[in-house]
Design a binder for these strands. Structure first.
Length: 496
DNA sequence: CGCTTTTGACCTGCGC
DNA sequence: GCGCAGGTCAAAAGCG
């Protein structure tokens, strides 16, 4: 109890600091918005008329995992009165962690989008209870063909590619293997798992090694959990769920950013991570565990945790050429990658934030790239930390931990997907070149959190759309502060 | 003994 | 209609 009280006190202090930084960041953000307004009014009106929301924080689209879309306003209201919002925000933050899998938003994974929250909840149960796709189809076909088709079409999959030595990725959930098959075109067998946390949970996953690189494990998740999950499992689940939701909502609407071009690619390289988004609806980059399989029945979004940050532009070339285009379902791929699979994880594993100030540039083509100098700086920092690191974590473990421990990481992933789905790649040059200091107060068990946080903080700062998303989140255990040295040391003190 | 994994059989959808 | 491939089932085997 004593330890808990102590930790509670520490967290309170931390929270206060976070709130301060949060508000200063918000002020800074508004300043930037003001400065950028004249520029953007000309640019956006011509190229991206739908991005006007970046000028009006009130209208920012918020992807809040586990919360209803209306909540951001509440949060914003709360932030206007910092002294009173402490408890509220903290509770909301906690709620966002625990409610992640019950999110109304997530339900779109399985369902047609425009259902009211109440009905969507019910429908999600139905969808969950009628898991097996074939049975679902059968059942629904008795009623309405159109509905059945939609139900079928709307079942999204989220595929995660990651380097992993273990037979399966530890995502915090309990799985039971129920089958194994040799799939055509891949000598490695594909294993089928179902979630055993709850007896009737519809979630399944397929695990298969990549035939071209055996060190890469491809895990495909399907379905939505119908039960609460352990905290360690909410991360992957909500992230994949959000990705699937994004994909589905994206597949059912037209995007100014994605539509007219053969392929819309955003390839930000931040903190040595690739963040590639592919739109396969128009290009031959459909991304499947089984490279030679025909077009899949389900829309798939792939989170790629394997590729090199310096060759993001060649990511597509490295994809198996047999990925067929799929006219029926769009598929998107996100890449969180390392140049060497162990460098970043090792660094993340140190548990300390990256304090290096990294300027960034954002191109008008939707790519966000660190300057060469910054990349060198960053990787130098990585290498230094690599030497210091005692633990050798795999990329998968690190990312999983980062996702598991950092709600902001999840939000950022979702936000990024949202920014792509909602309006294409970022287009303005806001905030470019200005060093942003990202500081993440360490918590007791948050290995791997720091880099992820700073990574996404920088990303958030570089993308007004996403930045807005981040700002609308309740205060999170990280902060962005321009006056780096003071806040860094302050938080270090708090950590100690 | 209970749970998990293995593995061949079976079911279903799809293309020809 | 047939064959193929993906996915699932369920009995047997394995394991702690």
């Amino acid at each position: 109890m004593g330890e808990v009280r102590e930790e509670n006190e520490r967290l309170k202090v931390m929270l206060e600091q976070i709130e301060k930084d949060y508000h200063s960041l918000q002020l800074r953000f508004f300043d930037i918005i003001k400065q950028e307004t004249p520029k953007k009014s000309t640019e956006s009106s011509v190229d991206h008329p739908l991005h006007d929301e970046t000028e009006e924080p009130d209208q920012l689209v918020s992807l809040c995992l586990g919360r209803s879309p209306s909540e951001p306003k509440k949060e914003e209201k709360a932030t206007s009165n910092p002294s009173n919002s402490k408890t509220t925000d903290y509770e909301e933050w906690k709620a966002s962690l625990t409610l992640g899998l019950d999110s109304k938003f997530q339900l779109s994974t399985e369902l047609v989008s425009d259902a009211s929250p109440e009905t969507s909840l019910e429908e999600s149960k139905q969808a969950a209870e009628t898991w097996p796709p074939s049975k679902t189809l059968k059942t629904v076909r008795n009623g309405d063909d159109e509905v059945s088709q939609q139900t079928h079409v709307k079942r999204a999959r989220v595929s995660v590619r990651a380097r992993c030595d273990t037979p399966t990725m530890n995502d915090g959930c309990q799985w039971r293997k129920y089958g194994q098959k040799i799939a055509k075109g891949n000598p490695c067998p594909r294993a089928y798992y179902r979630c055993t946390v709850a007896p009737e949970c519809p979630v399944r996953k397929q695990v298969q090694r990549c035939s071209e690189d055996m060190s890469i494990l491809i895990t495909t998740y399907e379905g939505t959990h119908n039960h609460p999950l352990p905290v360690s499992a909410t991360a992957m689940a909500s992230t994949t769920s959000a990705a699937a939701s994004m994909l589905l909502s994206g597949s059912s609407m037209s995007h100014p950013g994605l539509g007219p071009t053969p392929i819309a690619t955003a390839a930000p390289v931040l903190n040595g991570l690739n963040f590639n988004i592919l739109d396969n609806s128009k290009a031959k980059q459909f991304y499947l565990p089984n490279s030679s399989s025909p077009a899949p029945l389900f829309p798939t979004v792939t989170l790629d945790l394997t590729t090199s940050p310096f060759s993001s532009s060649t990511l597509f070339n490295r994809l198996p050429s047999s990925f067929a285009s799929n006219p029926r379902f769009p598929s998107r791929s996100l890449s969180f990658s390392s140049s060497e699979s162990n460098i970043i994880p090792t660094t993340w594993g140190t548990g300390y934030p990256s304090y290096s100030a990294v300027p960034y540039n954002k191109t008008h083509t939707g790519s966000i790239n660190l300057g060469k100098q910054s990349q060198e700086h960053f990787y130098q920092s990585y290498l230094e930390k690599t030497h210091q690191a005692s633990s050798q974590q795999s990329l998968t473990e690190s990312l999983t931990k980062a996702i598991a421990t950092d709600p902001n990481f999840r939000s950022a992933i979702a936000a990024t997907i949202s920014s792509i789905v909602g309006g294409g790649a970022p287009h303005d040059n806001q905030g470019g070149g200005e060093p942003i200091q990202a500081v993440s107060p360490d918590s007791l068990t948050q290995k791997g959190k720091a880099c992820a946080s700073s990574f996404f903080n920088r990303f958030a700062s570089s993308n007004s759309h996403t930045a807005g998303l981040m700002l609308l989140q309740p205060p999170l255990p990280l902060s962005i502060s321009k006056s780096s040295s003071t806040s860094t040391s302050a938080i270090r003190d708090q950590m100690n």
